[in-house]
Amino acid sequence: MYRILRKTLKTGVLTEKAPTSSDAALEALGIEVKRLVDKRFNGSLAIREVDAGSCNACELEIHALNNPYYDVERFGIHFVASPRHADILLVTGPVSRHMETALLRTWEATPAPKWVIACGDCACDGGLFGRDNYATRGGVEAVLPVDLYIPGCPPAPVELMMGLLNLFNAAD
């Protein structure tokens, strides 16, 4: 136990004021996200992530949002297990047709008001897997109304945060 405490103290607080300290515009990003989560979502925003055919790299970067550097929980953003608790569906992948019904059911289970984010190039327009593909829908918008597109292959954690901010601003 003592060694854990020592290591924790030695590591110190890593969480960055903003996603990267080099860019002044990004300095404000975290604060702005928090302000809008407080205002629009009463301080708590729940996201259900749905992999609809991703290559899994988008998931890796979404995961990174919870590491000590980005730590989006501190802005009141939670990734939830049940769509019934979700405000936002964060969808990755070109929507494989084998996931289509599951995605639709997840969306139906999400209470309104709700927003859909297409996360990554695949989710935006089919990406490298193409649109003319027997196995996919070539993007989320073919299946669900999309409120926001976050391109990137995969989008980096900072881009994901900026994307969220754009959504809040649009919803504001």
Binding site: N56, A57, S96, M99
Partner: peptide, 29 residues
């Protein structure tokens, strides 16, 4: 099979460079 996205078929007709980019998404990790 839920994330089956037709990679084997999608590869057909692509050139070598495009194939390598696609191969890089067989499993992103």
């Amino acid at each position: 099979g839920y994330v089956h996205k037709g990679i084997e078929k999608a590869a057909q007709g692509r050139d070598a460079a495009a194939l390598v980019r696609l191969a890089g998404r067989v499993s992103g990790d």
